[in-house]
Write a protein that binds this DNA or RNA. Structure first.
Lengths: 252, 252
DNA sequence: AGAAGGACCAGTGGTCCGTA
DNA sequence: AGAAGGACCAGTGGTCCGTA
């Protein structure tokens, strides 16, 4: 097990200029391309750094059991970022300061456990009982010591986990292919959309129904981009096409 | 039909001092009484009046059909408050500048229609599809011309509508009794809790399941107070008891 | 360049309390 | 005193973008 270590690959680097204006381009089947303004037009201008650390008189799950996992950072010193993911085959343990995809999927299972605990507490108290992994669950996970779980990360890879749940064969094959090709995690993540859209096509395009039908998946919100891709592809249903939604590209 | 009229019974009156500190008192069965701080401790201090009227570049349901109903205010002039409700028997039309309870329940059915329209639009667009009457639905209703529908009102009487849905016989009997006694709407509303808690008792105390099992009720959030009453009563299950939650009192 | 995640923001659920 | 509802607020879903 690795302990208290920085990611050796980290470098001080400025991100390039922020072109990510969340413009959505949805291609038609016939070759023409039409632009669609994103459903929630961006109009933000960020500030930065303010150190929340408000006293935070939150819920108080006193006995929330402290979880620890072999991967990533643990131990007593300053909390560091998790190691980045790399594409691994099923069963393969990532070497070096990396985490593998089995570990990624394991995080989803852990979130499910935390949700179940939050649900049990809510039922006991006669309070509203969440059916999905909500902010409350992420807060609970953090409080229980699982500081390596956070919302942006989990939401980022939901569709990858979805493919793993719905069709493990296809998911495993994709992992092997992308590992072989030496692709990075981002490329693999993008590639996970396509088989999901294909599955949705076979099931009447109802991606919500697909998520809800699977007990481990039903607790996760359908990612916006996956929903948009399914919608765009359905509207293309006749003939081959290319679809591009908010930076994620798919070719069919 | 009545048109463009003020409520003749309105008087300029100051509300009494705001003692409504949302303290919750849950009585035990044995006669002792213990206080419970509300799940969401109040810590507000209101300001007042700011006239939002922001341009409001909302959704744009252009063709939202304008609804009009016989009761209450309608017509071209300044929008006034709806007439207050009075306790009416089933089938009875309220006379004078009042609205009856059949009309109240009719508003819930209208909200359901609006929800269905919002759902259809969302499905068409491949967007997230609400399963409950949300802010979005209230906004849509307003835009469609149903300005007499608003969130605080609908949430206030949800449990009354619930009783009407779940056991119309009991609901009707209660209306007749309270009309006969000349009780006001507030008293009737309070009285609606008790039979609901009794029903929940028979069904394993799962008020969420009871709501969800009913197609017209499942689209409404379970009111906090009803949930609390069910919880408090369950914890009392043995013997007779008194329960008081946030200003609503019940005697058993 | 690729990736993890703190922190932000628009719009939500919930209902108080100034108003009629 | 009783009631309708504008408007508020804490905490949500969603994800950008400064960071490592």
């Amino acid at each position: 097990t690795t302990t208290n270590a920085f990611d050796a690959l980290s470098q001080e680097g400025l991100s390039e200029e922020p072109v990510q204006q969340e413009k959505e381009v949805v291609g038609s089947g016939g070759g023409g391309t039409w632009e669609v303004v994103a459903a929630g037009e961006r109009r933000r201008q960020r500030r930065r750094k303010s150190q929340r650390k408000v006293p935070d008189v939150d819920y108080d799950y006193e006995g929330a059991d402290d979880v620890d996992n072999g991967n990533g950072n643990s131990g007593g010193s300053e909390r560091q970022r998790e190691h980045p993911f790399i594409v691994t085959e099923p069963g393969e343990v990532a070497r070096g300061k990396k985490n593998g995809l089995d570990y990624l999927f394991h995080l989803y299972e852990q979130c499910r456990d935390f949700l179940i605990q939050v649900q049990n507490i809510a039922k006991e108290r006669g309070e509203k009982c969440p059916t999905k992994v909500t902010n409350q669950v992420f807060r609970y996970a953090k409080k229980a010591g699982a500081s390596y779980i956070n919302k942006p990360k989990m939401r980022h890879y939901v569709h990858c986990y979805a493919l793993h749940c719905i069709d493990e064969e296809v998911s495993n094959a994709l992992r092997r292919t992308f590992k072989e090709r030496g692709e990075n995690v981002g490329a693999w993540r993008q590639a996970c959309y396509k088989p999901l859209v294909a599955i949705a096509a076979r099931q009447g395009w109802d991606i919500d129904a697909i998520f809800n039908a699977h007990p481990r998946l039903s607790i996760w919100y359908v990612p916006t981009k996956l929903r948009q891709l399914c919608h765009a592809e359905r509207n293309n249903a006749a003939g081959s096409s290319s679809v591009s939604v908010g930076g994620d590209d798919l070719r069919f």
